[in-house]
């Protein structure tokens, strides 16, 4: 990934900045450029989503995605945020056996990967069980 491609999504990756439509009040994440509900009559503004939600589904990934080999096996989940939208995210700092659908998680700031040993480090959000 080019540096610019990582960099331009930093607000969303670090701080969960999504969109809110001033017309229909729907909250969206990741940010959108056109409201799918109001289309051109929508008025999208940046919106800061709360970093909390609950697990809708999860899987323990053994065959890791490229760049994630050292973290395998890792838990990948879909988390429905308290503000409505869902995100795909790893669940960090957990025993795979302790995860259940419905568990509440907070999104924390973690390393996602890197562009090789001498490239930039990618940061972003990961879920962590709230207990």
């Amino acid at each position: 990934m080019s540096v610019a491609r990582f960099w331009r999504e930093i607000p969303s990756r670090y701080n969960l900045i999504g969109s809110k439509c001033g017309n229909c009040n729907k909250i969206m994440f990741p940010p959108r450029f056109i409201c799918p509900y109001c289309r051109r009559t929508g008025k999208l503004e940046p919106y800061n989503l709360r970093k909390k939600g609950k697990i809708v589904s999860y899987t323990v990934v053994h065959a890791a995605a490229n760049g994630f080999e050292e973290q395998a096996p890792y838990t990948l989940a879909i988390v429905e945020l308290d503000d409505g939208p869902s995100v795909t995210t790893q669940i960090t700092d957990c025993n795979h056996s302790e995860i259940n659908i419905g568990d509440t998680v907070e999104l924390v700031f973690r390393r996602m990967g890197q562009d090789g040993e001498d490239g930039v480090i990618y940061y972003g959000y990961k879920g962590r069980l709230l207990k």
Binding site: S57, V61, A65, Y122
Partner: peptide, 18 residues
């Protein structure tokens, strides 16, 4: 928003399966 997070294709279908 999927692959950046570590999603793989089997991973996505596994989420549906679970």
């Amino acid at each position: 928003w999927e692959v950046y997070q570590g999603a793989t294709f089997p991973g996505l279908y596994a989420l549906m399966a679970r």
